[in-house]
Design a protein around this nucleic acid. Structure first.
Lengths: 195, 195
DNA sequence: TACTAAAGTCTAATATAATAAACAAATGGC
DNA sequence: GCCATTTGTTTATTATATTAGACTTTAGTA
């Protein structure tokens, strides 16, 4: 009698509807107008606003384009949903370089919309890290927690040791060297100047 | 013979697949791992990566959450798709206040992720605009193009006239007044200090 | 009130997103 | 080499997103 659903995930339509509705109304658009502008049926728009469906990203993109919005404007708190971005110490996927003399571990999330990258860097005795030029305006912050290093950029060189911090532009190639007998460690921040 | 499709929109699955795949691989995740983490079937993930489907935003959100990403990281250039955000002069939906003494028109897009709002303000003789306190750190820039105004914030008042510009914090309530006989106009920028 | 016209909601039909399970392809011992 | 295990793809089925059009509701006017 009762129909048995083979895979019965209960899909609860998310609630982005209010968002869309208020944005649409703020522009004084009717469902029909927006429907024509976006190429999405009036019915669909209505159902999205009522949270009766899980719309496709294709559809949401069409709507966003018509309203000259970023898609994330239409989706409920996409960034606020994840207040924390965690990188467990046990997760070694973030260790993107590990050879005998140099280990680099990323401490910031692998997002594409980032403007900041956070690293932990370990150089064994004799180790060095050579970097190609980054984008113009990019800058680096370095804080030494163990041993000592030299930073060479252009024709200048700076010596820093445990507890020291340094800040410099990295739009030309530069090199970090461990200048002590033992291992050296540091935290590094790379900041991209976005538009 | 040939089945006639009543509504035969040719849905071409967008190409966000590569994005997801590279982000997944960057983390060293397999389809099955990600499948369990996100609660999305392995098959679906594979099809998304191959651009064979138009996934639902619900699904993309699950994936984004599992990867601790913003959904826009997974969607192809959502912001870059619209380089220009146009507000036609003829579009009066952006005029959000219009009474005999005061007209305000928004010149910046009605996005939610904004940190800047741009307005054109017109005060007739005797008109004034009282504003409630904004968030801490919010600031305002004003440039007068016609007539003259006074800006009162706290117990201080400033007089500015055509050609003048002014900058002030607006985390306490403040008032703009037209102090001349004729109309006054200005451009106004409100800047929110994000996070 | 009744009569429009316009805006929004609902219904039935169809295309398709999402799934589980079977399949294929690569990987790693032994 | 062979077998087992793991990873990615394809298939068949079910659930559902999307649509056109019918319906309802609202708003304005005489």
């Amino acid at each position: 009698m009762a129909k048995v659903n083979k895979h019965s995930e209960k899909k609860s339509p998310a609630r982005h509807g209010g968002r869309l509705k208020s944005l649409r109304l703020a522009r004084g658009l009717t469902l029909e107008q927006l429907s024509r502008m976006a190429g999405v049926s009036k019915a669909m728009l209505s159902q999205i606003e009522q949270d009766k469906v899980n719309p496709t990203v294709a559809v949401m993109l069409k709507i966003a384009r018509a309203m000259q919005l970023n898609i994330s404007d239409l989706i409920d708190s996409p960034s606020r949903e994840n207040i924390f971005r965690i990188i467990p110490a046990s997760d070694d996927h973030y260790t993107f370089r590990s050879d005998p003399l140099c280990t680099i571990r990323t401490l910031s999330p692998l997002s594409l919309e980032k403007s900041i990258e956070f690293y932990h860097l370990k150089l064994e005795a004799g180790g060095e890290l050579q970097s190609e030029p980054h984008f113009p305006g990019t800058e680096e912050f370095l804080h030494i927690t163990r041993g000592q290093m030299s930073v060479a950029s252009g024709d200048q060189t700076a010596e820093i040791k445990k507890g020291d911090s340094i800040h410099y532009r990295v739009d030309i190639s530069h090199t970090l060297r461990n200048t002590a007998r033992g291992p050296a460690e540091a935290y590094m921040i790379v900041r991209y100047r976005g538009e």
